[in-house]
């Protein structure tokens, strides 16, 4: 079987696709890639289907050995990465030959990086998706020694690259007032809308705690309501007044009031903000949010067309050096300085 053998892996890694939709009424939150844009970039670089699964890595990656020929790509938060000891670029498709070793270290910026394989990882499907949902006990939890099998695809003739997206620098996160914003008075809402928030290190795929630059409102813990359905991006105010943003693996129902909901188009940008960094929330109306959603989907839809051939594949360059010493060496030197 063709695929990637895991030599070592971060405990935060998981298999993610677009998640399980339509099961909230049965108590199943959707899961899926924390950065849906990065997932789509990987599919565009490898010619994959939108539902194909990738490996999501938070903060740190792992080491992988190719079994058979595979094409891979790396997207999302850039991490230190090398192929057989040579540095590899983010957002490019890479050709791996049998026995090649890909090492992915710590993130350089952002939080969630993705390793994609052409054809997608063919791990276990549970309820129509491959996404690992640790809390629900679904899907494959990758560990050292596993072979992550690659799906069958026609060989890709040229490596492709995508430009670096802008959302890693985004520190204004747009949100709509939430389903329980009426439980907060005008003064509290104004403070919330004007605040800067620091991203806490209390974060995972369920959600992230964010610390406002004002003393938390509601010192009492009496602020709870009868549970109802939660949404991705819901900002709930828990008993001690601290906001938390609910994300892919959140509880499907919850009983804390939600003051605002981050718009769909900005969830990936928020999830990629490193712990300790700060951001602001700008409240928008629903027309603006829907406009942003349209723009977001257009950008994702345009990714396959934005992928451009890479002029130089480092691997082929190594071969070239051995075949054509003079030209190759000079070209190689120049390229290194670019």
């Amino acid at each position: 079987m063709r695929g990637l053998r895991i030599l070592s892996i971060s405990p935060t890694a998981s298999i993610q696709d677009r998640g399980r939709q339509g099961l909230l009424r049965f108590g199943v939150s959707p899961g899926g890639a924390m950065d849906a844009y990065a997932l789509a970039e990987g599919q565009a670089l490898l010619g994959n289907a939108a539902d194909d699964a990738a490996l999501e890595m938070a903060g740190h990656g792992g080491s992988f050995r190719a079994e058979g020929e595979v094409w891979v790509s790396l997207t999302g938060a850039p991490m230190q990465a090398s192929l057989n000891g040579r540095v590899v670029e983010w957002r490019q498709s890479l050709h791996l030959r049998d026995g090649d070793t890909l090492r992915i270290g710590a993130t350089v910026m952002g939080v969630y990086g993705y390793l994609h394989v052409a054809g997608g990882f063919q791990t276990e499907v549970v309820l129509n998706a491959r996404s690992t949902h640790v809390r629900a006990g679904f899907g494959h939890l990758p560990k050292a020694g596993d072979l992550l099998p690659a799906g069958l695809v026609p060989p890709k003739p040229v490596p492709l690259a995508l430009p670096r997206p802008e959302y890693f620098d985004q520190r204004q996160i747009r949100a709509i007032w939430g389903p329980q914003s009426h439980l907060f008075d005008d003064a509290e809402r104004s403070r919330f809308a004007a605040a800067q928030f620091g991203v806490s290190d209390k974060r995972d795929r369920m959600g992230m705690q964010i610390i406002p630059d004002y003393p938390p409102f509601h010192g009492d813990s009496g602020l709870s309501i009868a549970s109802d359905a939660t949404l991705p991006g819901d900002i709930q105010i828990i008993g001690n007044g601290t906001p938390a943003v609910l994300l892919a693996d959140r509880g499907p129902t919850g009983g804390y009031p939600r003051i605002a909901t981050v718009i769909t188009a900005d969830i990936a940008a928020l999830a990629q903000i490193s712990s300790g960094e700060r951001f602001a929330i700008s409240i928008v109306d629903r027309q603006e949010a829907v406009g942003a959603l349209l723009e977001y989907r257009r950008t994702i839809g345009a990714l396959p067309g934005m992928a451009e051939p890479v002029l130089r594949d480092p691997r082929d360059m190594a071969d070239l050096l051995s075949y054509n010493l003079i030209d190759g060496a000079i070209t190689g030197e120049n390229d290194e300085q670019n």
Binding site: Q21, G22, L23, L24, R25, A226, S227, D228, A229, L231, P252, T253, R286, V290, L293, L294, R297
Partner: peptide
Amino acid sequence: IETVPTFRSVLVRFDPLELPF
């Protein structure tokens, strides 16, 4: 996309680009 009945509410999840708000 889906509806979610709970103790006290029904959430209607939909695609606003297909079905305007």
